[in-house]
């Protein structure tokens, strides 16, 4: 009940915090995961290359 009244009194805050902020946090997390994945994949490939050179 409290949320119903609050959302009707603050529609823009409700929209921003509830949907836009959540969507942009999801995008930020996805970007961070993609960057992290690239970093660890590059590390793996470098390690493999170094190991094969030592052999």
């Amino acid at each position: 009940m409290g949320l119903d009244i609050w959302m009707r009194e603050n529609p823009l805050t409700y929209i921003w915090v509830g949907s836009y902020a959540v969507a942009f946090i999801i995008f930020a997390v996805e970007i961070a995961m993609v960057i992290h994945k690239r970093k660890i994949t590059l590390q793996q490939v470098r390690l493999m290359r170094e190991a094969s050179e030592e052999e």
Binding site: D4, M7, R8, P11, Y14, I15, G18, S19, V22, A23, I26, F27, E30
Partner: peptide, 17 residues
């Protein structure tokens, strides 16, 4: 999958009011 989740999430937030 993330876009489908955002669609459902924002839809729920629109549906409530």
């Amino acid at each position: 999958a993330l876009f489908a989740f955002i669609s459902l999430w924002t839809g729920a937030l629109w549906g409530k009011p």
